[in-house]
Nucleic acid binder design. Structure first.
Lengths: 351, 351
DNA sequence: ATTAGCACTCACCTTGCAAGAGTGCTAACA
DNA sequence: TGTTAGCACTCTTGCAAGGTGAGTGCTAAT
């Protein structure tokens, strides 16, 4: 059996109506709402075929039809009408993002907020991953007796500061010597490398300063290992409450399951990057998802880039019965927009 | 009518049984489970009295009794048995907190996690408020052509850094002069004051550097105004999902309401500080709460201190039918513990 | 190939009824 | 006078029966 044009039209009608109403769609409804020029009986015949093809299913004998995951997939791949954003909507997205460009954290959060508001779904935003970075420069500044401010510059441009214990007997000159040693030796090395080679050299210069040195190295080490804080990859969620408005989540147990999963960041990351290599838009529908817990959900995600390098992702999560065309358009536009804005901002810089 | 001892025992039995089972408590149940040495009929008489006093109520004529908000209040104030934490529990709390002492953010988050785990309720932790702080010291360090790292030290000890645009024609010497001017003039002043008096002076020294100066002042200003980020007071929630396990929230609409409120940080702050002046433990039961939305919830909160100064709060939120004695004990111990640990850490320092 | 018609199925709602839990009242008892 | 046993009453809960309506599949006519 093949999909002819009429079957396509009927499937499309079923999906669209079901997306809109969340109720199983009957043959009569289709023949009334959509102008196909055929009677309910004909549609019934076609629906039997569609069911045989696995594209739609019946909750029970006397109910209408509901799209299967496969049906949604066919709809997404072949039938969906593209949605275009109005210039106004585009402007809002761009302006709001640009407004917050100074603070990366804010961009992330706002992107999520925006996406979830527009789609009425839950948004997922993967924070840009700090790439492997190496130390470039160290400065010490006076703080209070026995302590100094250590300012570090990494080769990706980030600047951090922390307080180190230097003991009361360290003179500014000694500190300067230490900084010089670091700066001479470290260009481009990672913390681990530092520790091995550098220790002897510095010990010979400042034999008494062992405690202080350990402090400095400790801080450096912590700075480079991926921690809970800034450096770790993390998915930010927005509009999680929107899920509660979906009729498929009127059951409290489902909500509990879903929200529990929301707290497992690792799973969310897998969700956002079903295949790491795939460029562009990614759509995972229902049971296509490896995790059973999401078998009633679909995820649409896309990556954004700076200077051609993949940086993070934006996605939405909703029930399988979601407005795919709108969601896809938003996610697509959002990532393209982010890519453009960020690439503009960091033009030519290595990230 | 007065509360005699038997009435108290019966009320206590009703509250305790209702807390445990979430089912209206009948006279027969009480006479069986609790050894009062009287028959159900007698208990019924007393219950009628308790109802007249407004301490318990009946969902419907043929159901058992349920404590009213007033009943819980009486229970909390007069009847409750104190719970003591085992040494083991105390140790866990202390160790886990101390382990994370380096990162304030982590202490907050872990405190919340711990509290919600132990109580099976939702925890609220108010992050320490950065007190009004003034600038103490500024340093400039080289970054890349046209840009410099500005390191600021505030008088509460915090150190921040940011990148400023200095234009390509600013020499290190000029930067040093600028830093000197700032450091001479600013001791203890806030950003706004700076702007007014300082400008002319600096303009006369570095007349060409207007753009750069504006950049520096802009950053300073933003640094001092309470922002979305670090400086703003914020309540952190833990174990919000625990609420879903409570039978009173099996209705999805209630969940939606509650969770919406969770996103309004300002309301949560009010919740944690019902009266700003009150020292020690605070218990708000059901409709005692000014916000209608929480009329089925109780909040227990307490503040913690550093060197006698109020810093933040810890609280739990649950249905009115919650285990008050346990919750109170935990919150109390947690804040006392935090106060001790933090005061120890910051001994003598001004916070 | 399409359609009208019809019998059939099944979820859903309403209604009625029985069971059970709990109360309030009354009268008897210590 | 306080306590208790007994009883009638109330109200929820659960279950079964029956009616309704939406929707289907099949068949026969167009």
């Amino acid at each position: 059996m093949q999909m002819d044009e009429r079957k396509q039209k009927i499937l499309k009608a079923i999906v669209q109506d079901y997306i809109a109403t969340a109720e199983p769609v009957g043959s009569r409804t289709i023949s009334k709402k959509f102008e196909l020029g055929v009677s309910p009986a004909t549609i019934r015949n076609e629906m039997a075929d569609l069911e045989e093809l696995g594209l739609i299913e019946q909750p029970h004998t006397s109910a209408g039809r509901v799209p299967s995951d496969l049906g949604y997939r066919y709809y997404v791949d072949c039938l969906m009408d593209p949605v275009v954003l109005s210039e106004k909507e585009k402007k809002i997205i761009n302006q709001e993002v640009v407004k917050r460009l100074d603070e990366l954290q804010e961009v992330i959060e706002y992107t999520g907020k925006l996406v979830s508001q527009v789609t009425n779904l839950t948004s997922l935003v993967l924070k840009p991953k700090n790439r492997e970075s190496a130390l470039k420069k160290i400065y010490f500044l006076p703080y209070e007796t026995g302590k100094a401010i250590m300012v570090t510059v990494k080769d990706n441009g980030t600047v951090d500061n922390s307080i180190v214990d230097i003991g009361e007997d360290t003179s500014p000159e000694e500190l300067q010597i230490l900084a010089n040693i670091f700066n001479d030796r470290l260009s481009g090395s990672k913390a681990q490398d530092l520790k091995k080679g550098l220790l002897n050299e510095i010990y010979s210069e400042l034999s008494k300063k062992r405690r202080m040195l350990d402090g400095v190295l400790g801080i450096l080490e912590r700075m480079f290992e991926p921690k809970d804080g800034e450096n770790k990859e993390r998915v930010y969620l927005g509009g999680t409450l929107n899920m509660l408005n979906q009729p498929e989540f009127k059951d409290i147990d489902k909500v509990k399951n879903l929200f529990s999963l929301f707290e497992e960041n690792r799973k969310l990351q897998e969700l956002l990057n079903p295949g790491d290599d795939i460029q562009g838009l990614n759509i995972t529908i229902g049971s296509e998802n490896p995790d059973l817990a999401f078998k009633e959900c679909s995820i649409i995600s896309a990556t954004y880039h700076i200077n051609g390098k993949q940086i993070g992702s934006v996605g939405v999560l909703g029930p399988t019965r979601m407005d795919y065309s709108k969601a896809i358009t938003i996610v697509d536009y959002m990532t393209k927009s982010l890519t453009e804005i960020l690439t503009n901002k960091y033009r030519g810089q290595q990230i």
